[in-house]
Computed example of a mutant assay.
Amino acid sequence: MDKQKGILLESGTNELEIVEFRIGENFFGINVAKVKEIIPFTKPTSIPNSHPCIKGIFKPRDEVITAVDLPRYLNFPEEKSDQARYIISHFNQITVGFLVDAVVGIHRISWEKVEKPDETIFSGHEGIATGIVKLEEKLIVVLDFEKILADISPNTGIQVADVSKLGPRNRSEKPILIAEDSKMLANMLLDSLHAAGYTFVTVMPNGKEAWDMLEAIKKDKSRSWKERVSLLITDIEMPRMDGHSLTKKVKDDEDLQELPVIIFSSLIDDQMRRKGEALGANDQISKPEINRLVETIDHLIL
């Protein structure tokens, strides 16, 4: 898979590419930006006392990779097929191989076409999907791979307790706006920022709703928008409007361009960093580096 061609070269288009894959008779998707490569299934080496959804480890090249049994995590029956593949993914600074029954193809779509799903689907897994895409007569569920990984290995996610390592904190009422579609991550961010002393935090579930709020604040002439929002933190992957498009809108706006924007995403790598810089982001931080996020907020708004 050549990431040099396609969506990653474009900025603020509010589009993405997804890899469509199949588990049983169900179709799912993962953002191409999270995918390093797709390789045929090979039997992994089992690891004693590991999580039930950890199938084992394998070494396709020079790196040992953990294999996650995605059908088992989703409570689907095992399907033995020569079409089985590992989707080798890299996010949150971790490389993981997700086992799927088959890979169907790649689709380029607009985030506006990605609908927000109900909070609880697939056997009670809260927030297991970040979006639903309808292609022709087929529904593709875009899974929340960060939550899946955090469920299996909690230490890979945001650690609220790490904020205490920053030492004594003063209380701040500087208003902060967050655009984050994952309910789990949004709650962790809220808890972390509250622990860091930031008590006036508003969360919007996607870039579109965050932008609508900013426009409403800007139009309210009763007081300056700077009194209503001091900083924006945005994820990249979100339905309706992604974080890059949101950043571009803010930085292209004659009034709002002074608003500090931090992109806080599991997708941050060298290529994504260049893209964010071109859009005018004030900083870009990879999840789950919560302490660095707090220190950056301190620097930008205090």
Results as ranks from 00 to 15, higher is better:
N14D: 13
V19Y: 00
G24L: 04
F27G: 00
G29W: 08
N31C: 10
N31I: 08
V32F: 06
V35K: 04
E37R: 10
T42A: 08
P44L: 11
S50W: 08
G56F: 09
F58P: 07
R61D: 12
R61C: 01
R61M: 04
E63K: 13
V64H: 01
P71D: 03
L74S: 03
N75S: 12
F76E: 14
K80N: 13
S81M: 04
Y86C: 04
S89E: 01
H90L: 00
N92M: 15
T95V: 14
G97T: 10
F98L: 11
W111N: 10
E112W: 01
E112A: 09
K116Y: 01
P117T: 09
E126Y: 06
E126L: 07
K134D: 00
K134F: 00
L135H: 06
L139G: 00
F145V: 09
A150Y: 11
G157S: 15
I158N: 10
S164C: 08
K165Y: 14
K165F: 14
K165G: 13
L166H: 04
L166C: 03
P168A: 04
N170T: 13
I176L: 12
L177N: 04
A179W: 05
D181R: 02
K183Q: 15
M184V: 15
M184Q: 15
L185A: 15
A196I: 03
G197T: 02
T202I: 08
V203E: 03
V203A: 02
V203R: 03
M204T: 09
N206W: 11
M213H: 11
E215M: 13
A216F: 09
R223V: 02
E227W: 03
V229R: 03
V229I: 13
S230R: 14
T234C: 06
T234W: 04
P239C: 03
G243S: 06
T247Q: 07
T247K: 06
K249Y: 10
V250K: 02
E254S: 13
D255E: 07
L256G: 05
L256K: 06
I262E: 02
D270Q: 12
Q271L: 11
K275L: 02
L279P: 05
G280T: 08
A281Q: 08
N282E: 06
I285E: 01
I285G: 02
P288V: 06
N291I: 12
R292E: 11
I297W: 06
